[in-house]
Design a protein around this nucleic acid. Structure first.
Lengths: 232, 232
DNA sequence: ACACATTCGAGAGCACTGCTCTTGCTCTGG
DNA sequence: CCAGAGCAAGAGCAGTGCTCTCGAATGTGT
C-alpha cells in the first residue's frame, strides 16, 4: 500500500524505473548483454544519459536488476509448468520442470546467458539474487521429496570420502532426504543446465538434430538417476 | 619449413602475431573477455592501436584466435591426462579426462568462460573451431569404444521416438557403438560441462563445499551411465 | 644493383561508451 | 507558502573500436 499510495513522486519513480528495465530488457534480448548501452536506453526513452543514473547508479546495477528479474521469470515459468502436472507422477513432473527450463532458455537466450553463462565481467553474485536463483532448485527438491515418501529403493552406497559432504548437503538442503538422493539431485541439477547450455550455445550443432526428443530422453534418465522412478 | 624460412618478414609477422596473442591472453586471464581492449594490448606492446589491425582485422578476430587456442589447450590437457592412465580401466580413464577438464577450467576460468560460457556478443562459431572443439569429445568416444569391445550389458531400450535420432548420431559419431551408448555419451558429455560450469560460475556456492570429491563422484556415475563399468 | 611494389607503423580523427559534476527547474512536505 | 528535496539537462573526461592517410622500411623482379 505504501508502495502505491506514497505520493505521486514515488509512483513516477517506479514507472520510470520499470520503463528503463523494460527497454534494457528489450536491448538485452535483441543484442545481448555486451551491447547493452545505458546511453541507448536513455535515448530510446527520450531522456539524457545522465538522468538515468538517478535510477541505477551504474550499468552493472542495471544488469543485476535484469539478472534478478530473469531468475524470477525462469522460476515462475518452471513453477507454472509444474503446477500444470501437479497430480502426475514424479518423473512426469520432473521432466515438465526441465522442459520448462529449456523452453524458457530457448525463448530468452540472452537472459539465460546472462544468468547461467559467464558472469558478465567482474561477476559478483549479490545475496539478493540467491532467493530468486534457487526457485528451480527448490522445485526439483520438492519433487524428489514427494517421490521418496515410501521406503525407496536403496541407492548405490556413497564412497566413503563423499559421505561427510553428502550429509552436510542433505542437512542444508533437504534433511528429510537420504544423502545419496541429495547428492544425485545436486548433480542432476547441474547436469540439466549442461544440456540446456550446450543446445543454446551451439555445442550441439552438427551433433544433435532432434533436440527436443533428445532432451526429453536425457532428463528422463536424469530423473531415474535421482531415483524418481518406480523401479531402477 | 616454408613457414619458418619464408623470409624474415614472415617470421617477424609470426612473432608479432604471437606477441599480440600472448598479451591478449594475459589480459583475458586477468580481467575477462569483456575487458579485453585492443588499445591496451597495443599499448602494452609499445605500438599504436592502428598498427594492431595489420594482424587482426577486428577485436572479434583476436577473440576467435584466443578461442581456438583455448580449445586446443583444453584438448591437449585432456589428452595428456588420458595418456597417463592409458592402461587403466575405462572408468578410471573417463574420470581422468573429466578431472582434466575441470582442472583446466579452474586454472583458466576466463578462457573457459570464453568457450563454454555465453558466446561473446554476436556468437558465430567459425568452422575453424570445430576441429579444436571436438578433441575432448573424441577422447570420450574413444574410451567408450574401448569399453564396449566385448558384448556389453544391454542398455535400457531407447524410446521409439528417439531411435531415428539415436541411430543418426551413432552413424555420425561412432558407427561401431550401439545407439543407446552414443546417446548416453552425448548426454554425459554435455552434463560434464554442466558440472564444471556450475562450480566455476559460482552456482555451487553455499551448496557444494568439497567440490573435488563431489565432482569425482558425479563423473563416476556419469561413466556408469554410459556403461563403462563392469556391472550396472 | 636499381626501381618497383608491398608491407608496416604512426598519427589524426570519428562515433561511441560509462560516468561525473554543475546548473537550474519542479514538485512536495511541513 | 516556501525551503529543500528530487530531478532532468548539458558539458565534459577518459576510454573504446575502427578507418584513413601518409611516410618509411622492406623484400622482390628485372
Amino acid at each position: 500500500m505504501s508502495s502505491t499510495a506514497r505520493g505521486a513522486r514515488a509512483r513516477a519513480r517506479m514507472e520510470v524505473t520499470a520503463a528503463i528495465k523494460d527497454e534494457a530488457r528489450r536491448q538485452l534480448a535483441a543484442d545481448g548483454a555486451a551491447k547493452l548501452s545505458l546511453r541507448a536506453v536513455a535515448r530510446e526513452l527520450g531522456m539524457v544519459s545522465s538522468a538515468l543514473y538517478r535510477y541505477f547508479p551504474s550499468r552493472d546495477d542495471l544488469l543485476t536488476a535484469l539478472i534478478i528479474d530473469a531468475y524470477d521469470s525462469l522460476g515462475a515459468g518452471a513453477e507454472a509448468a509444474h503446477r500444470e502436472v501437479a497430480d502426475a507422477g514424479p518423473v512426469r513432473r520432473w521432466t515438465a520442470v526441465c522442459e520448462a527450463v529449456r523452453g524458457w532458455a530457448l525463448g530468452h537466450p540472452h537472459e539465460y546467458a546472462l544468468i547461467y553463462g559467464s558472469p558478465v565481467p567482474g561477476y559478483t553474485a549479490p545475496d539478493t539474487t540467491v532467493a530468486a536463483a534457487s526457485r528451480v532448485g527448490l522445485l526439483l527438491i520438492g519433487i524428489a521429496r514427494d517421490a521418496h515418501q515410501g521406503p525407496g529403493p536403496v541407492r548405490p552406497p556413497l564412497p566413503a570420502g563423499l559421505r561427510p559432504e553428502a550429509e552436510r548437503m542433505a542437512a542444508d538442503l533437504a534433511p528429510d532426504l537420504p544423502p545419496e538422493t541429495v547428492t544425485a539431485l545436486v548433480a542432476a541439477w547441474a547436469q540439466l543446465y549442461g544440456l540446456v547450455g550446450f543446445e543454446l550455445f551451439g555445442q550441439f550443432n552438427r551433433v544433435v538434430e532432434d533436440r527436443e526428443t533428445f532432451f526429453r530422453h536425457a532428463v528422463t534418465r536424469l530423473a531415474h538417476g535421482v531415483g524418481l522412478a518406480q523401479e531402477c
